[in-house]
Design a protein around this nucleic acid. Structure first.
Lengths: 152, 152
DNA sequence: ACGATATAAGTGTATACACACATATTCGGC
DNA sequence: GCCGAATATGTGTGTATACACTTATATCGT
């Protein structure tokens, strides 16, 4: 008559913290997000906002679904994030050719925010490149893409 | 008289999506979180909740600050997460020896939730191990710890 | 014993995330 | 041309995240 079932004491269980891909990925994501957010702070952009603006800029006017697909974000999450950027005046959301669609486009203020943020991003990115080493970073990024591919 | 400043058209800029450690880490974290949450769903636990319960279980009764430190979570974030687990009846938050402290301890229901969740976690973890390969996963986890170490 | 400082925790506010569900529009077969 | 399926988007709800600020308690130097 044990109060604590056996499964909770197995060796496998004890190493979840070390072996769980999800836990470790989320932990690292929190950690690096703070770093990037910290460097980006003078621009007024959070990392997520910076990423969305950059992607929107790269792809030109793009539908919400397409943008969500590109960034592997839930579409409904992106909708909320875009609302914030729209309120800040950094993007415009306009009707597309198809009346169901809505096109996301950067405003002038959006461009200016990116111009301010990009040098800050360069700085923190270089910090990470130096800390990890260029080669390790590159292979690490490859692994990250592998994770994304794994779950599609 | 260009409308779009030059910085937004440089080659460095065009590859942010591929080279940004933060963007790619967050993207992968979203992706794998969906996978783990999907497998864990029958247990009624989200990945985050599972991780917190496991850590609390491993460390025994532990203060909130210590638990936040272990999981590299903002203490204030953890406070909110713990509130949810407490409402679900999975943990107790009791006063510690030091009257400033509060100790987190699993309830019986918390143990039972883990017993239900662990086999589900095993399944998805094996799925990832097979998808990536054991060796790649291990070195990948090492890189993730390197990221965390980088930002401390 | 007292006051400055350090430590532990909570709250206000805002952003980020996603599932379930609802609505609007288009398209394809008939 | 009409109707069902597919597509594009929005909303309700709940969880996760973190910074700035506040409160409560303990500790340390004198």
């Amino acid at each position: 008559m044990e109060e604590t079932p056996k499964i909770l004491d197995g060796p496998r269980c004890r190493e979840i913290g070390r072996s769980c891909a999800c836990y470790n990925l989320r932990r690292a994501a929190r950690s690096i997000t703070r770093l990037y957010d910290d460097f980006l702070r003078p621009s007024g952009l959070k990392t997520t906002q910076f990423s969305v603006l950059m992607t929107a800029k790269m792809r030109g006017p793009v539908t919400i679904t397409k943008l969500a697909d590109l960034t592997v974000t839930e579409r409904t999450t992106l909708t909320r994030n875009l609302t914030i950027l729209e309120k800040k005046g950094l993007i415009r959301i306009e009707p597309g050719l198809d009346r169901r669609e809505r096109q996301v486009a950067l405003t002038e203020a959006g461009h200016e925010a990116l111009v301010k943020a990009i040098p800050l991003w360069e700085t923190v990115q270089e910090h990470v490149e130096k800390g990890l080493g260029q080669d390790r970073l590159i292979s690490f990024l490859t692994e990250l893409r592998g994770i994304v591919a794994l779950t599609r």
